[in-house]
Amino acid sequence: MLQIANSENVLAEAQNLRESPFAIRGLTVSYDQKPAVFSVDVTIEAGKMTAIVGPNGAGKSTLLKAALGIIKPLSGQVTLMGRPVAQEMHRIAYVPQRASVDWDFPVRVIDVIEMGMFRKTGLLGRLSRADRAHAMSCLGRVGMTDFANRQIGQLSGGQQQRVFLARALAQNADLYLLDEPFAGVDAATEKAIITVLKSLRAEGRTVVAVHHDLTTVPEYFDNVLLLNVRKIAEGPVATAFTEENLQAAYGGRLGTARLNAAAVSG
C-alpha cells in the first residue's frame, strides 16, 4: 500500500518538475545555525505571475538568492523544466533588491542595460549596432530613454529600479525573478513596472516577485506563495491568499502589515 502510493507520488512529482519553470525541493538556508528558510518546496506555474509574500525576516529574498546559488543553501534542489537550475541560468533574469549595488560606480544607464546582453555576445563578442538598438528599446519599455547617458547614481530610486528591470528585459529570459521590485518606488514607477511585468506574462513568460504590499496582491498576481521560514501556502490567489493562511504567516504582525500596506497604497 505504502509502496504503490509512493510510486504514484513519484510519477506526479516528476510531471510537476518537468512542467514547472521554477521548482524548489527541500530548500534549507541557515545563517549561523538559525534557519532563514526551512525545508521549502515550491512549484511555480509557467506563464503566470507569482507573488512571494511574508513578514520581514521570513526568508523571501533568501529563498530567491539560495535558489539561484548566490548564497549557498544547507540542502535542497532547484530545477527549471526538470533540469538543474545551474545549467539553465541563461533562461533566468534576476532583478536584485535595489540597495545591493554600488551606486557610485562609474557606469551610465545604457552601460547597465548592455550588461544584460552579455550572454548573447559572449566573452569575446562585441555589441553590434542592432544590439545597441535593442538595449535602447528595452530602456524605452520602462520609459527611461531620456536618461541613457546619466550616471546611475544620479537617478531617483524609482528610476534606478526601472533601469534594473530594463536590464532584465535585455536578457530576454523565460523566467523573471524580482526581489521587492516595488519597494520605495513612486506611483508612476510602480505602474510602469507592473505594465511591463504583465506584458511579459502576455508573451508567455513566467514572473516571480517578492512583494510586501498585501493590498495589491490580488490585483497584480495570479498565484501566491506565503512564506515564513517554512512554506505556509502556495497556489492561486483565490484559494491560497486566505485570511487563515495570512494569519498563519504573519501571526500577530498581520494587523501591522495591513496598516503599512494601506499607508503605502493610500
Binding site: L2, N6, V10, G26, T28, S30, F38, L74, S75
Partner: peptide, 30 residues
Amino acid sequence: LNHRKFQRGVHIRQGLVSLAQGQAIYEPLT
C-alpha cells in the same frame, strides 16, 4: 563541529518529515 552537527540534524529532521508525509527523499546525504 557545531555546523556539521547542525547540518546533520536538519537533514535528519527534513528526511523524517518527508517520510511522515509519504514523500520521496531526494538528497543522498539525507
